[in-house]
Amino acid sequence: MQDNQKSESTLQNEVAQLMVECLNLEVAAEQISPDTPLYGDGLGLDSIDILEISLAISKRYGLQLRSDGADNKQIFGSLRSLTTYIAAHRTL
């Protein structure tokens, strides 16, 4: 149980780091709270940013990006929901 929690927070940090690098964000990865919305008011990402991250994530974690059923708004709701999605779908 503890191991699971630990690996999830490691992955969360990794994803935050990836986002910061990929979009050249002016915040530190550690400063992104897991529940801050990524879209709009929270981190202020827009639809092209989201597409850019999803491309980077698909390469890094071997995710299949398919349009059927994949709901962007929900997956990219927060760092936490994005990490959960990656953990469930990663192949790398």
Partner: peptide, 10 residues
């Protein structure tokens, strides 16, 4: 449509 994750790949 830009709303899907795979838009960039398409």
């Amino acid at each position: 449509g830009l709303g899907n994750l795979d838009a960039m790949l398409k």
